[in-house]
Design a protein around this nucleic acid. Structure first.
Lengths: 225, 225
DNA sequence: GGGCACGCTGAAGGGTTGCTGAAGACCTGA
DNA sequence: TCAGGTCTTCAGCAACCCTTCAGCGTGCCC
């Protein structure tokens, strides 16, 4: 679960980052509205935590521009003080939820998880790539109509690649998203699982959906290979 | 899920509309009691969110007239201020639930979903999966025509799996939904009951409707196994 | 062409996950 | 209070999966 925090108070931003990382989220920080907008548009975040009072471009504007740009990330607004800004306005501009400062960290995590769950349910249930079908809800995968048995890790890996089909996804990202692992995790782990995945969904069918992008990671061919 | 919002504050009504649409509800708005009554009677809404303070005809009256007209929509009342109006009166006139302003949007959504669930469950429900039949209303289950006796927990478990037939449902979700248990409840409880369920609806018939999805939970085969 | 970085893969152990029988706690109705 | 059924907890076991390691092949740059 990838989270972007847009918050100009350094201490608060860092505190949120640390706390969320302990909870298993993968967190990036930026400190003003414009950087937030830029970063959110060229990285695929699941949830964006957005302060309203920001230098440059305020939270409302960032939010509405993101929605205008077609972003479907979950947006959680931080309002500076209860009642000072209109929460309804936050929701108006396309936010999914809001939280009044000061807030309890436990509440933030709870809301974030609830939001993540809702976002997750927006995601497409099934991804079809040629004759390769990945069903996230049922946790099943079929190739040319034949069911393919995958281990939990293999499935999670395939699922993440499928959600970003056609894109090159780095091993780092995969480690973060599929493994929730720390910064010192071994990329070879990904390689081993990719290898196993190929042996199940590609080799027996003489196909090559899982493609290596040297130096950049892996890509799942949008047409199934 | 179709929702009608009867609320005279434009901003609030719009905010609710936006927020609920994000959640996948289909939302219409009217701004006074009479229009609310008219619209609710000639369109089939599942839930009506009804402000009490309304120009023309207040919320209580709209509510009781709707009930008098035989409407079976779920009605969620918005009371202007905690205690100022009697919530009991809201329920008296036929409302299903109420919420005091100002309310958190998250709470509204939660209440709405709970209400929608209750409304949905008013209708008798039967799930047919191959030769396995689960009747939620009658609390009965038959396999290949033979009735199967289940304990309350076993039935609740089967029922929840049946409602999401074909999907992998996590032990966590099952604990939340079937057991309403806290965050530190034991997944083994689910395992034990799954085991018991299999012994009753699968083993004697040489079938396998209840499937284990390692690392993800359980799935009830859409074809009965 | 040589050297280096990157990626692939088979094997093995250690850890995790899920299953199940049994026992005791709990609830309900008589 | 007692009896019957039901639910949860516990512990042992089996199967499975993940990671690590090491060796090898391949592509890239000098």
């Amino acid at each position: 679960m990838r989270v972007l925090v847009v918050e100009d108070e350094q201490r608060l931003a860092l505190a949120i980052k640390h706390g969320l990382e302990v909870e298993g989220f993968s967190v990036d920080i930026v400190h003003d509205g414009l950087s937030g907008l830029a970063r959110a548009t060229d990285h695929a975040y699941d949830v964006i935590i957005l302060d309203i009072m920001l230098p440059g471009l305020n939270g409302y504007r960032v939010c509405s521009r993101l929605r205008a740009a077609g972003s479907d990330a979950g947006i959680l607004m931080l309002t500076a003080k209860d009642g000072e800004w209109d929460e309804a306005e936050a929701l108006d501009t396309g936010a999914d939820d809001y939280l009044s400062k000061p807030f309890s960290f436990v509440v933030l995590v709870a809301r974030l998880k609830a939001l993540a769950r809702r976002i997750g349910s927006r995601a497409p249930r099934r991804t079809v790539l040629g004759d390769l079908v990945v069903d996230s809800a049922a946790h099943t995968c079929t190739r040319a109509g034949t069911p393919v048995a995958l281990t939990p890790r293999e499935f999670a890996l395939l699922d993440h690649l499928a959600r970003r089909a056609g894109e090159a996804v780095s091993k780092r990202d995969l480690l973060d998203e599929v493994w929730d692992s720390g910064p010192d995790s071994d990329p070879n782990t990904v390689e081993v699982h990719i290898s196993a995945l190929r042996r199940k969904i590609d080799t027996p069918f003489g196909r090559a959906a899982v493609q290596t992008v040297r130096g950049a990671g892996y890509r799942l061919a949008a047409d199934g290979g």
